[in-house]
């Protein structure tokens, strides 16, 4: 009983200490200027981490991402605009660093592709529906043509048929 209680206490102590410990390890000097930090984070969500390529700079904890965030922070402090900072990074890492690729001749397909596919799909749908409606209308109008009628009759009248 006593050992169980001790274990419980130890668990409680650990769980109380763990988040504190994590905070101590992770807390960079954020609080200095929340507005600055908000801008760094906002800009970082627009930028791609080049190491773990499906993450933004804001999400990534790769060392390069931390360095690049520091660069962004320094440059904001130095009074540079968002465009200037983005230019700084694209000059070094190319358009790939942008999470939202710019519209250019090389990226037209990327941007327009989904819409082209959507239009093609819609066009296909409309055509199919129209064709089907026409076929149904023809049927309703008794529009089975004479030749087909003749063939059906021949089949029905066939002597020795299964029926």
């Amino acid at each position: 009983m006593r050992s169980a209680l001790a274990a419980l206490l130890a668990c409680a102590a650990l769980s109380a200490a763990a988040p504190l410990h994590a905070q101590m390890r992770e807390a960079p000097p954020i609080a200095e200027d929340p507005a600055l930090e908000a801008r760094v984070m906002h800009l970082s969500t627009e930028l791609r981490c080049l190491v773990c390529q499906n993450q933004t700079l804001a999400d990534s904890n790769a060392e390069l991402a931390i360095d690049l965030r520091n660069q962004v922070r320094e440059q904001i402090k130095a009074g540079r605009s968002d465009e200037q900072i983005i230019d700084y990074l694209t000059a070094r890492y190319g358009d790939f660093v942008l999470y939202r690729p710019p519209v250019k001749t090389t990226t037209v397909l990327l941007w327009a592709g989904p819409f082209v596919l959507l239009l093609a799909g819609l066009a296909g749908l409309v055509l199919t529906l129209r064709r089907r409606a026409r076929a149904q209308a023809a049927e309703r109008a008794g529009g089975v043509d004479a030749a087909a009628r003749e063939r059906a009759k021949a089949l029905l009248d066939e002597p020795g048929g299964r029926a």
Binding site: V51, L64, D67, L68, R92, Y93
Partner: peptide, 13 residues
């Protein structure tokens, strides 16, 4: 040491 020149050269790996 700080990787600053690396950034200028677009080093990421």
């Amino acid at each position: 040491e700080k990787g600053r020149i690396g950034i200028d050269y677009g080093v990421y790996g």
